[in-house]
Design a protein around this nucleic acid. Structure first.
Length: 558
RNA sequence: GCCCCCGUAAUUCAAUGGAUAGAAUGGAGGCCUCCGGAGCCUCAAAUGUAGGUUCGAUUCCUACCGGGGGCACCA
């Protein structure tokens, strides 16, 4: 929204102080007595708050107060809030969209699983956070390229091909490709512990693959296709839509020249044991871009990918939604990209997040392929949700119950991950994740379903009039919150912390529930009824939009 | 050994250097002929330790204690 409330206030402060807008911080205080908005600009500038406040008079505000050590607190006027509310009623929630400070083309890489293994629980973080960021950045008006970069190349596929040649069973593989591929991989790595010649064999198979060996290429392609098919099946279940999938293998043809050019320009050199390395300022570890045996390595493919993405889409930024553990790797790759002139400083960002830990706070055992498939997690959530729907709302049809179970189960799982500050580790806990009370997706979905129910009973399709008349403090709270929706979304588009949206939606649900308990809508007198229906409608729209940004759907009834 | 991240209530989490550290679950108590009780309200309960920086520190700096991750031919 061009004239979002916070921006209007910032503009006023800018005029009054001459300060640059990006330096002016205006926040929504938690404590109601501190106003609807507040600024500490006087403290920052060490100027008299009274003097600044004097220049801020505007009909936006009912009053301006100086408080504490020098805060300026703003109390918005009812007339202004009502005016803004009717603007949204007139234009719909889309007035909140398309307001980036500066429009950019942004590539977001997320999910990026390895082929020949099922999507696991450890992909949940990247996939869900990545998709939410895609949605949010798009909502505020950026052009966003959603991209997965599956690991479909490298020595491990040599190992897999070797395993297939030893023990592969065509029929079994056809019946359950993902499961069998995983079995082959596990069997191979166990056998390789006893017999290290196997590893050598695997490396040779990869070398053959790199050199274009027909048989190996055929096996590889088969595995690749089956894997991608399986990924999209699970993505669909998860409600995730990744529009571009470009695997590592895509960059194979250009790797040799990339290395050669780097060598020629003196940016890379031969390391101690024959590998080609790039020395990085500020890092004690040089980054290998070609192994001593001449084979390529992940970093090289990453570099080629960066070059390709920036060029193909004219992107100004690439965001990598990937776990904390990869911090070192990305620092190295980004450093290389800058040194080789592939990317400029500040174009590459690692959006990191914490580990997914098993109950008890221990690491999930993923060694030897004993990983927990993502699908299993989703199935379990849906199953648990189904039980609850059966119990709580038997009046729904079976088909409807199935559908609600999906939306609630998957929604709860996503919300569980998105509601935390992404930097901290997530301890996986079924009971907490599928808790439908309190700070959870079902709580918000339920709140929304009740609002829908009111609108249904009132036969409300679209607002009849575009008027909101604020009649009590609760209604004012709700309107102020609704108007700040785009501020939350804008913040996330810059800091990439989707938990702020989760928290926002929860707090809106909380005030709306208060309103629901205390303020009659259908039984209100005619004058108040229309206004309250409009408030209910606005809140419902915000829930729907906000949940969708997080990748969560809101059932009409549940 | 070096580097990075994290220590907040019984538990799981919030808090761009801001005002009385917010929630949820669990616990204790309550909710009127009224729109869906998956709801609402009330109560008890926390910043690992010791210093420093400043108007102000959970946040920044230093040391220590505790947990996790990473560190050249894996991705």
């Amino acid at each position: 929204m061009k004239n979002m409330v916070r921006r209007e206030i910032i503009k006023l402060i800018q005029k009054a102080t001459g300060e640059k807008p990006e330096k002016i911080r205006v926040e929504r205080p938690e404590e109601a007595s501190h106003g609807d908005y507040s600024t500490n600009i006087a403290l920052q500038l060490k100027r008299s708050p009274a003097e600044i406040a004097e220049k801020l008079r505007s009909d936006l505000f009912k009053k301006i107060e100086i408080a504490g050590p020098g805060f300026i607190n703003f109390f918005l006027s009812k007339e202004y809030l009502q005016k803004r509310a009717s603007e949204i009623l007139k234009q719909g929630v889309k007035v909140f969209q398309k307001n980036p400070i500066k429009k950019e083309v942004i590539v977001i890489e997320y999910s990026s699983p390895n082929i020949a293994k099922p999507l696991g629980i450890h992909h949940l973080g990247s996939t869900i956070i990545g998709q939410a960021l895609v949605n949010i950045l798009r909502f505020v008006g950026h052009k966003v390229i959603s991209l997965s970069f599956p690991g479909d190349w490298g020595t491990q596929f040599g190992l897999l091909i070797a395993a297939y040649k030893h023990w592969g069973d065509r029929e079994k593989l056809k019946a359950d490709p993902i499961f069998e591929m995983l079995n082959l991989y596990v069997r191979f790595s166990q056998a390789a512990k006893e017999n290290t010649d196997l590893l050598e064999e695997g490396r040779d198979e990869f070398k053959k693959l790199e050199q274009g060996d027909k048989e190996n290429k055929k096996i590889w392609k088969w595995f690749l296709d089956e894997s991608l098919k399986d990924f999209s099946r699970v993505y669909k279940m998860l409600g995730v839509k990744i529009e571009n999938t470009i695997g590592e293998s895509f960059y194979e043809p250009e790797l040799k020249s990339l290395v050669e050019v780097a060598l020629k320009r003196g940016l890379a050199e031969k390391g101690e044991e024959g590998a080609i390395v790039v020395k990085l300022p500020g890092s004690g570890t040089p980054e290998i871009i070609q192994k001593a045996d001449g084979a390529t390595i992940f970093t090289t493919r990453e570099l080629a990918a960066i070059r390709h993405r920036l060029k193909k889409w004219h992107a100004s930024k690439i965001l990598y939604v990937a776990a904390n553990q990869q911090t070192f790797h990305f620092r190295q790759v980004f450093g290389c990209a800058e040194k080789l002139g592939i990317a400029k400083k500040g174009q590459l960002f690692h959006v990191k997040f914490g580990m997914m830990l098993a109950p008890g706070g221990k690491k999930f055992a993923t060694r030897e392929g004993r990983l927990i498939p993502m699908e299993e997690v989703l199935k379990e959530s849906i199953l648990r949700a189904k039980k609850i729907v059966d119990e709580l709302n038997p009046s729904l049809s079976e088909a409807e119950k199935e559908n609600v179970a999906k939306e609630v189960g998957v929604g709860a799982t996503k919300f569980f991950i998105l509601s935390r500050n992404r930097l901290s580790d997530i301890v996986f806990d079924w009971d907490q994740m599928l808790n439908l009370k309190g700070f959870s997706a079902p709580y918000i979905q339920y709140t929304c379903a009740r609002l829908n129910s009111i609108l249904r009973k009132a036969n409300f399709k679209k607002p009849k009039n575009r008027k909101v008349v604020i009649a009590n403090p609760l209604e004012k709270d709700i309107i102020v919150k609704i108007l700040s929706f785009d501020e939350v979304v804008e913040d996330i588009s810059q800091n990439h912390f989707p938990n702020q949206l989760a928290e926002y939606l929860y707090s809106l649900a909380n005030v709306i529930n208060n309103f629901y308990e205390s303020t009659p809508v259908l039984k209100a007198n005619e004058a108040e009824k229309d206004s309250r229906l409009n408030i209910v409608y606005l809140a419902k729209e915000i829930f729907k939009t906000g949940l969708n940004l997080l990748g969560i759907s809101a059932p009409e009834r549940m």
